[in-house]
Design a protein around this nucleic acid. Structure first.
Length: 602
RNA sequence: GAUUCCGUAGCUCAGCUGGAUAGAGCAUCUGCCUUCUAAGCAGACGGUCAGGCGUUCGAAUCGCCUCGGGAUCACCA
């Protein structure tokens, strides 16, 4: 909040001079003044009053007098039931507004001036190559992309990385089913997108496997035994062993099927509008942890059991004993992660490594941090887990093996189709060429989907009901895109018909008759850098999303009560054009951070 | 069982480092397009902030307990 720090400091000084009492700045509570009272900022004086043994009202009055006398920015004040409401001079708002609008980034650099040259790594997406992406991945991808953009906007160099899980039993299952029933099918021969084709065989494998289990159980075998001894799972495990021993035919099929999947993922990522600076593949990193294990044993951080398995005891940290190397010498998932983290640090000297991963892996990342700390890497604390909750369907959890998923490609296509339908019904862009129109449908459909997902706090589980389509009215992406398009339209008309050029360099300080809605809008505009800083600190794109909504709403209120283009009042028009333009700039910039584009017309 | 996250209007969500009368959107109902884009604006309706106890001048917000939901506690990844 603008002027918060100044007011805090001034209040502290007032207490010192008036009462000779030293208060810590943390003890001074400052809020935005509620709409129903006069004022901009409010000092809550109850705890200060206690120190002076005065009534809150009397103290409020004394401090208010002092502020009015000593602070150039303070116009007046009023005290209501222990709340000191301070009115900041309009001139002061205008000065800051004028300065901020000259800044191309609207104040972003000032937030974080002394950042390191070393990058922040954001790892997200991290798909398995045995099935197409679904709604859960959509949340991951949107979040990861947005958080990388937000960190970048606050001055951090960012690298987006993707660790693809391309090896393991899951891909062997798809391979096996394809070998048995594939008849040489390819994406080209079937016209099916590569990731979907491979996913189809994964589901087939699972059906067969389940049927075998049922059969075994009917012949009197216990469930857990049946699960381990079903012929198809044995075959899949054999296939994995063959892969690990570099069997040529197996490796070739693995490469072929993975290449189908990558082609499919590329298309999906492109549709999503997300990108990566670097891809890592688990088939290349899964052996990296061995060095860490040796190091841990040497430092006696790890210990070896009689069977040869390697462990760490984390009970002091409130965690458990954790396995790092199996008795047969193979490594487990966390061992790979330890090795990968170390390699990345050596490569990049990252200032932070942010893992965008679902909250079911919170324990895993606690363990990861704890082990790195024990091993003495002082950057252990820079490993951060951006944890997000699952997406719920009304029917319960999504299970890709059972086919109860919302497929990412289908969902995006539906959103774009809905956008097309609604746009055509409104009939505002009938003059668009088809290519231009399709780009707009894509923009709106994806905007609706991204905003729908990103406006929700990552920590909270979100409910998605495929039966109710995502809204295009109210607190939605299209509402905000629409506000942008409307501003652009008004500005175009102002320039075209009323010759209001040069509004961008209009000296806004000279405009004296600011009204209530203009000021409200100005205050929200000036809050942008603070919101951005908050979003970066909390790793929460939802803060940006909710802020832009407030901004768009404030603009719409202003728009309805004030004529922007008015030939008789050039100054007023110029000021309002300037204000509208600033508003549009922020909407565009902030939405870009969320990966959402805005149209000139819709 | 242990750890952890969550529970706010019929539905989807803000607000949570303690502050004034708890906010939006959707849904339902009512107004506003021969002035700049009505995907908009204005209004009505809708709340025991899961429940209880405590701390405090003050609790949706902090602490404890209970209830309800999720996740995790694997020689899976």
């Amino acid at each position: 909040m603008l002027f918060e720090l100044e007011l805090r400091a001034a209040t502290e000084k007032a207490m010192q001079e008036l009462y000779d009492i030293t208060v810590s700045p943390d003890d001074i509570a400052i809020n935005e003044t509620r709409k129903d009272f006069e004022g901009d900022l409010t000092v809550v004086v109850f705890n200060l009053a206690k120190l002076t043994r005065q009534s809150p009202d009397a103290l409020g009055k004394n401090v208010g007098d002092w502020l009015q006398e000593h602070c150039g920015e303070v116009l007046s004040y009023n005290v209501v039931k222990g709340f000191l409401n301070v009115v900041v001079k309009t001139e002061a708002w205008q000065n800051v507004y004028s300065e901020a609008s000259l800044d191309k980034t609207l104040g972003r650099v000032s937030i974080n001036a002394n950042v390191s040259k070393h990058p922040v790594l954001v790892e997200y997406s991290s798909p398995n190559t045995n099935k197409p992406l679904h709604l859960g991945h959509v949340r991951n991808n949107f979040l990861g992309y947005a958080i990388a953009e937000i960190l970048n906007a606050t001055g951090n160099p960012v690298r987006k990385v993707n660790l693809i899980n391309d090896r393991g039993i899951h891909i062997c299952k798809s391979m096996l089913a394809w070998m048995k029933n594939g008849n040489g099918e390819t994406p080209e021969s079937t016209g099916i997108k590569g990731d979907h084709l491979v996913g189809k065989y994964y589901v087939e494998f699972d059906k067969l496997y389940k049927a075998e289990i049922v059969q075994l159980m009917e012949s009197g075998i216990a469930e857990d035994v049946a699960k381990k001894t079903a012929p198809s799972i044995i075959e899949a495990q054999d296939l994995l062993l063959k892969w690990e021993s570099h069997d040529a035919a197996t490796v070739q099929l693995w490469e072929t099927m993975n290449s189908w999947v990558y082609k499919g993922f590329d298309a999906t990522y492109k549709m999503m509008g997300v990108s990566f600076d670097k891809f890592y593949y688990e088939s290349e990193t899964y052996l990296l942890g061995k060095g860490i294990v040796l190091e841990g044993l040497e430092k006696s951080v790890f210990y070896k059991k009689e069977d040869g398995s390697v462990w760490i005891d984390l009970t002091e940290e409130g965690l458990d004993q954790k396995l790092l190397i199996r008795a047969d010498g193979t490594s487990v998932y966390i061992t790979q992660d330890l090795g990968t983290a170390k390699m990345r640090y050596e490569e990049t000297k990252f200032t932070k490594l942010i893992y965008v991963v679902g909250n079911e892996q919170e324990y895993h990342f606690k363990v990861l941090r704890a082990i790195m700390k024990r091993l003495g890497y002082d950057w252990w604390n820079e490993l951060q887990h951006l944890s997000y909750a699952m997406v719920d369907l009304p029917s319960g959890k999504m299970k890709s093996r059972e086919g109860t998923v919302v497929d990412a490609d289908d969902l995006m296509q539906e959103m774009i189709d809905d956008a097309k339908k609604i746009t055509q019904e409104l009939g505002k862009i009938d003059d668009f060429e088809s290519e231009e129109a399709n780009a707009l449908y894509h923009m709106i459909g994806m905007g609706a989907l991204k905003y729908f997902i990103l406006k929700i706090d990552p920590e909270k589980r979100m409910m998605f009901n495929p039966a109710d389509s995502i809204d295009f009215n109210g607190n939605t992406g299209p509402f905000i895109q629409y506000t942008y398009a409307r501003i652009r339209s008004v500005i175009r008309k102002g320039v075209q018909y009323k010759n209001l050029t040069g509004y961008e360099s209009f000296n806004t300080v000279t405009y004296k008759s600011i009204n209530r809605k203009e000021k409200d809008l100005m205050k929200i505009i000036l809050d942008y850098p603070f919101q951005l800083g908050d979003a970066a600190e909390k790793l929460s794109p939802a803060i940006i999303a909710n802020y832009v909504y407030e901004l768009a709403k404030a603009f719409n209120q202003f728009y309805h009560e004030n004529a922007i283009v008015d030939e008789s009042q050039t100054d007023t028009s110029m000021f309002r054009m300037h204000l509208s333009n600033q508003c549009a700039r922020i909407i565009k910039m902030a939405f870009a951070l969320l990966g959402i584009q805005v149209p000139e017309r819709m």
